[in-house]
Computed example of a mutant assay.
Amino acid sequence: MQVYTTIRELREALEEKRREGKRIGLVPTMGFLHAGHASLLERARRESDTVVLSIFVNPTQFGPNEDLDRYPRDPEGDLRLARDNGVDYVFMPEPSEMYPRPSATGIAVSGITSVLCGASRPGHFDGVALVVSKLFHIVKPHRAYFGMKDAQQVAVITRMVEDLNLDVEIVPCPIVREDSGLALSSRNVYLSDEEKRQALVLSESLSRSPIWLQEAGGDALALQKQIAEHIAKTPLADIDYVQVLTYPDLERPTTAAAAKSAWIIALAVRFGKTRLIDNRLLSLEELALAAPPIPQGTKGV
Rank of each mutant, 00 (worst) to 15 (best):
173 C>S: 15
185 S>T: 13
200 L>Q: 02
197 R>T: 03
203 S>P: 07
193 D>F: 09
184 L>S: 06
184 L>T: 11
196 K>V: 02
188 N>K: 02
214 Q>K: 15
209 S>W: 06
185 S>V: 06
215 E>D: 13
196 K>F: 01
208 R>Y: 09
185 S>R: 02
197 R>D: 01
178 E>R: 07
198 Q>Y: 01
180 S>P: 08
199 A>K: 00
183 A>H: 02
215 E>Q: 15
214 Q>E: 13
184 L>W: 15
208 R>F: 06
176 V>E: 11
187 R>F: 00
188 N>A: 00
190 Y>I: 02
213 L>R: 02
207 S>H: 12
189 V>F: 05
205 S>C: 14
204 E>P: 06
205 S>T: 10
207 S>A: 13
180 S>N: 04
215 E>N: 14
208 R>L: 10
200 L>G: 02
201 V>A: 07
184 L>M: 14
198 Q>H: 03
196 K>H: 09
174 P>Q: 12
203 S>E: 11
200 L>I: 03
208 R>N: 11
209 S>G: 10
188 N>R: 04
210 P>M: 06
211 I>T: 14
208 R>A: 08
174 P>T: 13
181 G>E: 09
175 I>Y: 14
186 S>Y: 09
210 P>W: 03
196 K>C: 01
194 E>L: 10
192 S>K: 14
179 D>P: 11
178 E>K: 04
200 L>S: 01
180 S>K: 03
204 E>N: 14
201 V>Q: 00
204 E>V: 06
205 S>H: 02
201 V>N: 01
180 S>V: 10
187 R>W: 01
179 D>C: 01
176 V>T: 15
175 I>L: 14
193 D>N: 11
195 E>N: 03
197 R>K: 15
180 S>A: 03
185 S>Q: 07
192 S>W: 10
182 L>C: 07
210 P>L: 03
202 L>D: 05
202 L>C: 08
204 E>T: 15
211 I>Q: 11
179 D>A: 15
187 R>K: 12
176 V>D: 08
199 A>W: 01
202 L>G: 03
212 W>S: 04
189 V>E: 11
209 S>C: 06
213 L>A: 07
181 G>V: 10
174 P>C: 11
175 I>A: 12
183 A>I: 07
204 E>K: 15
195 E>Q: 14
214 Q>S: 15
197 R>I: 00
210 P>G: 11
203 S>H: 14
194 E>P: 05
197 R>F: 01
194 E>D: 14
186 S>K: 14
212 W>L: 13
184 L>G: 05
185 S>A: 12
215 E>S: 10
181 G>P: 08
